[in-house]
Design a protein around this nucleic acid. Structure first.
Lengths: 216, 216
DNA sequence: CCAAAAGTGTTTTCAGTACACCCATGC
DNA sequence: GCATGGGTGTACTGAAAACACTTTTGG
């Protein structure tokens, strides 16, 4: 009567060329064959929900030490037919460096832009939407930005991410001015290798207190 | 192995004379006799966490139709000795009108200013702090303010609440100017009965889209 | 008439916005 | 040398902050 199954639904995010993306797996068998899903696992008695999420990532991708934290919770009785499972969505962040080192191409998973989610099993689509909305507001804070950019980044890259988060275009000069005025980043005096055009300067986050870059 | 007990830890808030307060109950027996606690109940299989929280409030105070939503989640294995219970803190909001109609004085409970929480059982103190921090940021939005003030309120009352939320003093004239400029409230042309001094004008929230009053 | 709290307008300051031209690289 | 994307400075605008005196009530 009081015992419940709890599943961690892992929303694993990365920033790829200034785009916020989430990792989804393809369901290879019926029901819902061809639909997409969040990697998930039932939480066992002797672990925390964070441990459960980290184990799921490790199992699916072979990557360890990924930051996770709880997102939203769903206790709808009938969210999955014929069984009662409490869902806890987990926000997880991985940077492109770790990604490139450890992840190979696969038929079974794909990184999707968070604003372009394919059809999913059960309520995963709704969970992704709610969790991503929550995460987008958190992501305006350097605490989370740091995790995507543990080493360095370019201004145009970061600007592109903010344009997606805020859903509007930002003037290049004003964005740069604002970021520098906050005194949270520093010039590394390095340049990236660009596809074409002038190479961009690389910046990194200073080791200061975290603050929000934008509101609203 | 996969079955867990889940408890709803109800953080019931009200605004009393511009002060944000939370309801706590006194533990009347050992262990932790004399310590304070959040009202809570284990969630049963056939209810949602919201229903569990609402039932808890109904049981303790005899008040129904109270708005609730999930706050934070704790899955620490040893948060309660010798047993594993997953804790979900629930934000619940009650207005002073409902309060006065239904609640009588009691030895067993008390409304505490959220910035002055007494000693609590287990991890309740930490849960209150985290949930209240979360709620304070939400409370800058009229969606939640409305629930505290379903009928009307005075400017000084609302200003006092904002001063607590933001942790700083606000100029009376500037606060008034800002609130009126947002076009979210209207003058009811009524006055309240004051303790002493000039009676304050009563305002109410317009039926418009919700927005944030302040950031940061 | 005195104490207590509410109400009101103007100036200053600073952050946000708008805007156009030059620079470094690859091909 | 040209296409591509990166880097820079200034003027305008509007919201936030600073600030002091008057009004209404109860006792």
């Amino acid at each position: 009567m009081f015992n419940n199954k709890i599943e961690a639904l892992v929303n694993l995010y990365t920033v790829d060329n200034g785009e916020l993306k989430i990792l989804l797996f393809k369901k290879m068998d019926d029901p819902f064959k061809g639909y997409w899903m969040l990697p998930s696992n039932l939480m066992i008695n002797k672990e925390t929900i964070e441990e459960c999420a980290e184990a799921t990532i490790s199992e699916k991708l072979g990557v360890n030490d990924v930051y996770t934290e709880p997102g939203i919770i769903t206790t709808q009785i009938d969210r999955i037919p014929d069984t009662r499972i409490v869902g806890i969505s987990m926000i997880a962040i991985i940077d492109t460096v770790k990604l490139n080192l450890n992840i190979e191409e696969s038929e079974e998973y794909e990184w999707f832009n968070v604003d372009n989610i394919p059809k999913t099993i059960y309520d995963h689509g709704e969970i992704i939407k709610k969790t991503t909305d929550l995460f987008k507001t958190k992501l305006l804070n350097t605490k989370y930005l740091r995790k995507f950019f543990p080493s360095d980044f370019t201004m145009p890259e970061l600007q592109k991410l903010f344009e997606q988060l805020l859903g509007k275009e930002i003037d290049r000069r004003n964005f740069r001015k604002k970021l520098l005025s906050l005194d949270i980043i520093e010039n590394t005096n390095e340049k990236n290798v660009s596809m074409s055009g002038r190479p961009a300067t690389l910046y990194s986050f200073k080791e200061t207190d975290d603050k929000n870059v934008y509101y609203e």
